[in-house]
C-alpha cells in the first residue's frame, strides 16, 4: 500500500533472530542497518537516523542497561526516530520500563512477519502499537476500579472511560479494527486513544503507578 518502504534499523544480539526478522518482513519495510549491542546500536542509529528502530530489550554492552540504555542515549532523536521494542520477555518490568523511556510500542518475538510489518508501518506513521499483554499491564498500572476514571482530558494520572474500554478490548485480543467496530468509532479514533494512553504511561507520575512500578523494581 505504501509506495516508499519504511527504513528500519534492527537491533538484536542474536544473529539468528536478525536473519529471521529480515526474511519475514515484507516489502513495506526495508532494513538499512543492524546492531548487536548497546554501543553499536547508539552509533548506527545516530549515523543512519532511521524513522523506525526495532529494538531488543535485552542487549549486551554499554553500562548493562540494554534497550532502555539505548533509548536514553538516543533521547535527542526521539522526535524523528520511533522505537518499537521487541523482546522475548513479556515481563512487566521489561515492557513498561522500555515504554516509559520513550518506545512507541512493544511486541514479543513470537509475532509473525506480516504483523511485525504492520506494527512497523503503524509506528512509522506516529501511532502506538499495543499488544494485548501491554494493554493488560496498562490496566494493571492505572487500576480498574470505578474511582480510577479520569474526568478531564488533560489528566495524566488516570485513564478516561473510553481509553480504558479500548485497553480492555485490546487486552481481550481485539485488533484495532475490531475495537473500532465494537465501539462504533473510526480506527483513527482508536489510534488516538491508544496514543493518549501511551503518553500517560510515559508521563504519569501517578502514585499508584509508581508504587506498582516500585513493587516490580521498575523505578
Amino acid at each position: 500500500m505504501n509506495a516508499v518502504p519504511v527504513d528500519v534499523v534492527l537491533v538484536d544480539d542474536h544473529h539468528m533472530f536478525r536473519t529471521g526478522v529480515r526474511a519475514s518482513l515484507d516489502a513495506r519495510v526495508r532494513i538499512v542497518g543492524e546492531a548487536e549491542d548497546v554501543d553499536g546500536a547508539v552509533a548506527v542509529i545516530h549515523e543512519v537516523r532511521p524513522p523506525v528502530v526495532l529494538l531488543d530489550v535485552h542487549l549486551p554492552g554499554g553500562d548493562g542497561g540494554g534497550g532502555t540504555e539505548v533509548l536514553r542515549r538516543c533521547a535527542d532523536l526521539l522526535a524523528e526516530t520511533k522505537f518499537l521494542a521487541l523482546s522475548v520477555s513479556d515481563a512487566a518490568e521489561d515492557v513498561v520500563g522500555v515504554i516509559r523511556v520513550g518506545a512507541r510500542g512493544y511486541v514479543t518475538k513470537a509475532i509473525d512477519g506480516p504483523a511485525l510489518s504492520d506494527a512497523v508501518v503503524r509506528v512509522a506513521s506516529g501511532d502506538a502499537v499495543f499488544s494485548p499483554r501491554l494493554a493488560g499491564f496498562v490496566l494493571d498500572a492505572f487500576g480498574t476500579a470505578a474511582g480510577d476514571v479520569a474526568t478531564g482530558d488533560d489528566e495524566l494520572d488516570r485513564l478516561s472511560a473510553r481509553e480504558r474500554e479500548v485497553m480492555r478490548l485490546i487486552a481481550r485480543g481485539y485488533s484495532y479494527r475490531e475495537v473500532a467496530s465494537e465501539l462504533f468509532i473510526s480506527i483513527k479514533t482508536v489510534e488516538t486513544h491508544v496514543s493518549a494512553v501511551l503518553r500517560k504511561l510515559q508521563l504519569s507520575s501517578r502514585h499508584e503507578l509508581t508504587r506498582w512500578a516500585a513493587a516490580r523494581r521498575l523505578l
Binding site: 544480539d13 548487536e36 549491542d37 548497546v38 554501543d39 553499536g40 549486551p60 554492552g61 554499554g62
Partner: peptide, 8 residues
Amino acid sequence: MTTAEDPT
C-alpha cells in the same frame, strides 16, 4: 565488537 565490552 562485543568481546571488548563483554565482562566475561
